[in-house]
């Protein structure tokens, strides 16, 4: 569904990584690790088309990124759920409207009951009318997950989704992602939390990738 082929990217002329080849196929589950600044977030941004690779090619659902056009990219993004590290909410909208935002922005019908059910699923049923700035970090993270999955995306990308959560909530959120994956959603999670990866691995057939030395590698037995 999302394919990266010999992709290279960097900033201000300095290459962050190169020769990255990755396929996020149906029902796949990937963890992406690496030290801070290694390029995890950059790789995720490439995966939802926010960045254009300096070299190599990226295909979304069989179509080359460069050939998609603006509307094509928007339509591809409607099939990709993203949990951003900083959540990226519209602070003037209620939490409920923020969760429904991908449907509203995608000009699709908003099934109100589904939105309510989803908010209950992530434990935010009492916060429907709350504004994002009034929520705790953990609540925002869960709301971001709800927003990412409201469209039943084919691919879910999550950038440090448990960064603001306690261990119990992290495990719960991971189990939600595993549940989605079992329903066929491809999942890519960028995290530096190796304990979380170790906890998850027995439950799901996940590949663990690591960005090191400007290359994307399959992580070894050290995990």
């Amino acid at each position: 569904m999302i394919e990266l082929e010999t992709v290279a990217h960097g900033y201000d002329g300095a290459e962050l990584f190169s020769d990255v080849t990755l396929q996020l196929g149906d029902g796949s589950f990937h963890f992406l690790t690496g030290p801070s600044g290694a390029g995890k977030t950059t790789l995720l941004r490439l995966c939802y088309g926010e960045l254009v690779p300096a070299r190599g090619s990226i295909r979304f659902f069989g179509q080359e990124r460069r050939d998609l056009g603006r509307d094509g990219l928007a339509l591809a993004r409607q099939r990709i759920g993203v949990v951003h590290q900083d959540c990226q909410f519209l602070d003037h909208l209620s939490l409920r409207d923020n969760v429904a935002l991908p449907l509203i922005a995608g000009e699709r019908p908003v099934p109100d009951q589904d939105v309510d059910d989803l908010m209950a699923w992530v434990g935010l049923e009492g916060h429907a009318q709350a504004l994002p700035p009034t929520l705790s970090g953990g609540e925002r993270q869960r709301a971001a997950l709800a927003r990412a999955v409201i469209t039943s995306p084919a691919v879910l990308l999550a950038d440090e989704p448990t960064g603001n959560l306690d261990w119990e909530m992290s495990v719960r959120l991971l189990s939600l992602l595993i549940e989605l994956n079992r329903m066929g959603t491809a999942v890519l999670i960028a995290t530096h939390d190796l304990n979380l990866i170790r906890t998850t691995k027995p439950q799901v057939s996940a590949r663990v990738l690591r960005i090191a030395g400007r290359k994307l590698q399959l992580a070894g037995a050290e995990l």
């Binding site: 519209l90 409207d97 509203i104 908003v110 109100d112 589904d114």
Partner: peptide, 19 residues
Amino acid sequence: MSARDPRRDPRALRVVPPA
């Protein structure tokens, strides 16, 4: 389950902050 017509959904206009 109720679903609003996306073309008539007032939330589509509220995505931009007022005033």
